[in-house]
């Protein structure tokens, strides 16, 4: 496990407190690059050091997942894709796969959404088309194929097989959003997958760019994009908390920084150096 010194004292105490909610062996949901990744929580999670994590990427992952893998905190990753986008492959993930150091549960995007939808509705599973004949399905003993009990055709047409995805429940969901109000209502706009993650999670930890004084539910226009406080466990302010990713409607991604990471993290040593050095200053 990666042990780092020199930057812990700079970490925000609120984020450190939130990170304490994560304990070893938990299943954690993290959002896709462009939806609102709480990069600000990455270092507090690494400092916290709770390992054996099972990560669920909704529905794909990138820098944050690669850093948690590099820090040795990850037991398994369920994802439909993992990369640094324009900056190329995810170096610590690719190495861990090659070494057999993590369990990979390859999925397809709509299957992850289907699993979250089952959790959202309190259902045991959601059926989904596609997948039959793929090695994605062949490597997922937890997914089942049944014959559609509502098949319209005559018996001569034969069965209509369809895949069932079991509900995805997670211990903790972590994401970043533009704003929350004093009551803990979080504005997620049209990034509805953030709500799906929260519905499926026992604990939801959110970082935001700012706290607003007026209730986000007071205006019907903002209310339509609100994840109500009912589903939110804790909120903390982290300005530019998605950096080097962008945050929709707020700021763009810092592609140069992603490229810098991609280059540095090709080796375990380079990764450790990157995590120790300049990135933190740049973030502040």
């Amino acid at each position: 496990m990666l042990r780092m010194t020199g930057w812990e004292e700079k970490l925000d105490p609120n984020l450190r407190r939130m990170a304490e909610r994560v304990v070893p062996g938990m299943r954690i949901a993290l959002p896709v690059d462009y939806a609102g990744v709480s990069m600000a929580m990455t270092r507090p999670l690494i400092e916290r050091g709770a390992g054996d994590l099972d990560l669920v990427c909704v529905p794909t992952g990138g820098l944050q997942v690669d850093m948690l893998i590099g820090a040795g905190l990850v037991r398994s990753v369920e994802t439909s894709g993992l990369s640094l986008g324009e900056a190329g492959g995810a170096p610590r993930f690719n190495q861990a796969v090659k070494d057999g150091a993590i369990v990979i549960r390859d999925a397809t995007c709509p299957a992850i959404h289907a699993g979250l939808m089952a959790a959202q509705k309190g259902n045991p599973f959601t059926p989904i088309r596609g997948l039959i004949g793929s090695d994605v399905l062949a490597n997922r003993p937890d997914w089942k194929v049944i014959d559609n009990p509502f098949a319209a055709g005559s018996p001569a047409d034969g069965p209509d097989p369809i895949v069932l995805i079991p509900a995805i429940h997670v211990d903790v969901a972590i994401f970043h959003a533009p704003m929350a109000d004093r009551a803990g209502n979080v504005w997620i706009g049209r990034r509805r997958e953030l709500a799906a993650m929260a519905y499926a999670a026992r604990t939801t930890l959110v970082t935001v760019e700012r706290i607003v004084e007026e209730s986000l539910l007071a205006d019907e226009i903002t209310a339509a994009g609100v994840l109500p406080a009912l589903y939110v466990s804790e909120v903390a302010v982290a300005e530019r908390g998605a950096w080097p990713y962008g945050l929709w409607g707020e700021y763009g991604a810092d592609t140069a920084e992603l490229q810098r990471y991609a280059k540095a993290a090709r080796s375990a040593e380079g990764f450790a150096d990157y995590m120790r050095a300049g990135a933190l200053e740049a973030a502040q």
Binding site: T60, T79, S80, G81, L82, S83, G89, A90, D106, A107, T108, C109, P110, A111, I128, R129, G130, L131, S134, V136, L137
Partner: peptide, 9 residues
């Protein structure tokens, strides 16, 4: 490589 994304559907 990164993974199957939405292709399997």
């Amino acid at each position: 490589w990164p993974g199957s994304f939405g292709s399997a559907y």
